[in-house]
Design a protein around this nucleic acid. Structure first.
Lengths: 197, 197
DNA sequence: TGCCACAAACCGACTGGACGGTATGAACCG
DNA sequence: CGGTTCATACCGTCCAGTCGGTTTGTGGCA
C-alpha cells in the first residue's frame, strides 16, 4: 500500500498539471494551483519532481513514448508501404484525439522547457519523423508514391493535420474520431499517391 | 518630423517585441528586454501601449487584417471556385512564410491574451474561416469539389498546413516559398477535388 | 522675432505582489 | 534508528505597471 500511495501522489500531480496546463497554459499555472488541484502539498510534489518544468517534460515523455511505440508496432507488422502508411496515419490521428490535451500543451509550451530538454524532445520527434520518412521513401521506391514533391513537404502535409487537431476537433462535435482519422488519411494518401493527372 | 518620431518609437517597440516573443516566447520576455532591444524606455513604451499583452494583440491585429484583406481581394477578382481556392491557398502560404515569426507567436501565445481579446481574435479568425468555407461550399455546388467528406474536415486539412509552416519551414532550407506554396496547394486540391476513385 | 503657456512625449526609480523553490522537521515504516 | 514521505513556513527574485518629474514641440500674442 505504501507503494500505491507514492505512485498515486505523483499520478495525481501529473493529472492535475495536465488539466491546468491545457486549460490555462503553462506560464499561467502556478505550482500552488497544481498541488491544490491534486490534493497534495508542495513538499510532496517537490519530493517526486525536481521542478515545474519537470512536470511538463513528464507529460511530453509519456506521449512521445506512446506514439513511437505504436509506430514501431505497426511498422513491425509489415506490408506494402502504402498499407503501413495508412495504418500509421489512422492510428496517430485516433491516438492524438485521445490525447488532445497533451497535444495542446505539447505544441504550445515546448519553448518553456530548458534548452537540454527541448533538445531531447526534438531528438525524439526526429526519430519519429525519420521513421515515417523512411516509409514514404520506401513507398516511392515501390512506385506507389509520387516523387515530384520533396519528401519533407509530403511529410509536413500529414504531420500538420495531426498538429492541428487540438485546434478544431471537439469531442462534443459531430465528427467521430475514427471517421476523421479515415478521412484525413484518405486525403493525405490521395495527395501522396502516384497518379497521372 | 515630430510625427515621424512618435510612430517610429511604437514601430521599434513592436519590431523588438516580435523578435523576442518569437525567439524566447511571450512569458519569457520581460518588458525591460523589449524596450532595451528597441532602444527606448519603459515610459515611452507605456505611452503608446497600455500593457504587455497589448503588444501581443497589436502583432496579431496586423496579421489578421493583412490576411483577411488579401482573401477579400482575391475573392473579389472572381472566377471558378477552384481557381479562387487555388489562388487563395497559394497566397496564404506565401504570406505565412513571409510572416513566419508572427505565426510562431500566434499559435503559441494566443492563450496569454485577456479573455476579451482572445474572443476578438477568434472572431476574426472565424471570419476568415467562414469566407473560406463558403468558397469550398461553392466548389461543391459547382461540382468540382467532393462532398463525401465534411467541409470542416476539408478546411482543417488545409489550415493545418498553414498552421504548421513555422514548425518546419526554414528560410535557409532548400525549399523555395513559392514552390512550397504550389506544392501544398496542389496536394490540398488533389485531396478535395471530386474524382472517381 | 522673442516670449510664454500649455500639452504631448518621454524618463527611470520604485513598488507591490506573485511565484518557484527551499529549509526544517514531524510522522511513519522497516 | 536510518531512511522515506511528506507538511509548513519562509526566502529571494523577478517583473508589470506606476508616478512624479523633465524635456521637447507648438501655437498664440505682443
Amino acid at each position: 500500500m505504501g507503494t500505491m500511495r507514492t505512485t498515486s501522489v505523483a499520478d495525481e500531480v501529473l493529472r492535475a498539471a495536465l488539466e491546468l496546463f491545457a486549460a490555462q497554459g503553462y506560464a499561467n499555472t502556478s505550482v500552488q494551483q497544481i498541488v491544490e488541484a491534486a490534493g497534495v502539498t508542495k513538499g510532496a510534489m517537490y519530493h517526486y519532481f525536481s521542478s515545474k518544468d519537470d512536470l511538463l517534460f513528464a507529460i511530453y515523455e509519456r506521449m512521445l513514448s506512446l506514439q513511437k511505440r505504436r509506430l514501431d508496432e505497426i511498422t513491425a507488422k509489415g506490408g506494402s508501404a502504402e498499407a503501413v502508411v495508412r495504418a500509421v496515419c489512422e492510428d496517430v490521428v485516433v491516438t492524438s484525439i485521445d490525447f488532445l490535451r497533451e497535444g495542446t500543451i505539447f505544441f504550445r509550451s515546448q519553448h518553456m522547457l530548458t534548452t537540454e530538454r527541448q533538445k531531447e524532445v526534438k531528438r525524439r520527434r526526429r526519430e519519429y519523423h525519420d521513421a515515417f520518412a523512411e516509409l514514404v521513401t520506401r513507398g516511392q521506391a515501390e512506385g506507389s508514391f509520387r516523387d515530384d514533391i520533396p519528401v519533407s513537404v509530403l511529410i509536413a502535409n500529414f504531420f500538420s493535420d495531426v498538429h492541428y487537431l487540438p485546434h478544431w476537433y471537439s469531442a462534443e462535435g459531430p465528427e467521430d474520431k475514427t471517421e476523421v482519422a479515415e478521412q484525413l488519411t484518405a486525403l493525405f494518401l490521395r495527395g501522396i499517391r502516384r497518379s497521372d493527372d
